[in-house]
Each structure stands twice: as C-alpha cells, then as structure tokens.
Computed example of a mutant assay.
Amino acid sequence: MLIFTTRFSKKKAVLTVIVIGAVIAALVILAGHFQKGGNADLPQLTDNPQRVAYLQSLGWEIETEPLETLQFLLPATLTEPYLSYNQLQKEQGFDLSESCGKQVARYTYAVTNYPGRSTGVQINLYVCEDLPVAGDVCCPGSDGFQDILAYPESDT
C-alpha cells in the first residue's frame, strides 16, 4: 500500500477552490451556449417590424399589419394535426416538438407577390420566445395549397 502526504497551506487551498470554481463556471457557460446553438442563426422577432423584415428577407412582399394574431399553448406532446404539420416544418429546418408545452403566437399576413396569384395568399408565422418556430404559405379554398416559407422558384 502506498501513502502520499503533502503540505497544503491555506493559500493553496483558497487558490484551488478559486480555480475549480472558475472551471465549473466556464463549463456552465459553455453548456448553455451549446444548448442554444441550434437557435443561434434564428432572428429575434420581438415586434412586428422584425417579423415583417424576416418575411421580406425570404423574398415575400406582405401587408405590414397582420390579418390575425393568435396566442395558443402548444400541447406537451404533438398529436394530429400537429404531427403532419411538423413534417412540413422539418422540410424547412423548424421542429415544433422543441416548443411543446410552450406559449406560441401565430401571425397571419396577406401576401402581395405570390407568383400567379394576386390575392388570397397568406403567410402564417409562428413565434415562440421571440424566435420563429414554424411557418407556412397557404391559400384557402378549393384550389388552395399549403407550402413552406421559402419563396417559390420561377419555372423560367
């Protein structure tokens, strides 16, 4: 059996505690940074001008005031119709399951530049904790559609 002994002064003990505390603080900060890493490139959408600018950056021309604003609580577990809608969201890099159990706001805007349709097209933008979490472009009616937020590429 080996036994090691060492002298440990109060000064060394205090210095050791400070160094260990600094390492733990750095780990906590880094863990928080990497946990939010998936949202790092998403814009903060705290007000209407930021939401409008975000949609315009995607190529859309919209009426600047929302047609409708709706607040709702996303269920703790996604069931239909959220599961089907989330498949559309995953195509564009969103995932509603990350917002389960949280308050979500839906902002609906009228689109003025949808190719081939001058009226009747809307954009829904879903925001949770000031970040976009989902969205779609839709046209209600018998010849309607629902698609991702990306501006449609021309067929030319």
Rank of each mutant, 00 (worst) to 15 (best):
V127F: 08
V19C: 12
W60T: 06
G120Y: 03
Q56W: 01
T108P: 01
L2N: 14
T16Y: 02
T156H: 05
D41L: 11
V23R: 00
A150M: 01
G21W: 00
N86T: 07
D95N: 13
Q87E: 10
E63D: 10
E129G: 05
S57K: 12
D47M: 11
F34M: 06
V121W: 02
P140Y: 12
L45G: 02
G120I: 03
Q92C: 08
P75K: 06
L149E: 00
Y151V: 13
P75A: 08
S142C: 07
L96T: 10
P43F: 09
R106I: 14
T79V: 12
T77E: 14
I18W: 00
E91W: 02
I29P: 00
G37F: 02
T6A: 14
R106Y: 07
E129A: 14
I148P: 00
L67Q: 13
A134F: 07
Y54C: 11
Q92M: 04
Q122R: 03
E153C: 05
K102H: 06
Q92E: 05
S154E: 13
A25G: 01
F72I: 03
P49C: 12
L58M: 15
F8T: 06
D147Q: 10
T77S: 10
V137D: 01
V104C: 07
D143V: 07
R51Q: 12
S154K: 08
I3H: 11
F34L: 11
G135W: 06
L78Q: 09
P140I: 12
E98Q: 14
V14P: 03
D155L: 13
G59C: 10
L2A: 11
F8A: 03
Y85H: 12
I24D: 06
Q92S: 05
T108H: 03
F72H: 09
L55Y: 04
A110T: 11
A110E: 09
V19Q: 07
E68S: 13
A40V: 12
L30D: 04
Y151G: 09
C138S: 11
R106D: 13
V52L: 09
L73C: 02
F8I: 15
I29N: 06
L149H: 03
Q56H: 02
K12A: 12
V28C: 08
E91V: 08
Q89L: 14
C100W: 01
T6E: 12
T77G: 07
A26E: 02
C139S: 11
P49I: 14
L2V: 15
T5F: 11
V104I: 15
C139W: 03
I3V: 14
I20N: 00
P81Y: 03
D41T: 14
E63F: 01
S118Q: 12
S154N: 13
L83I: 15
Q87P: 00
L67S: 06
K102P: 00
N48H: 10
L67C: 01
P81A: 08
I62P: 02
Q56N: 05
T79H: 09
A105M: 14
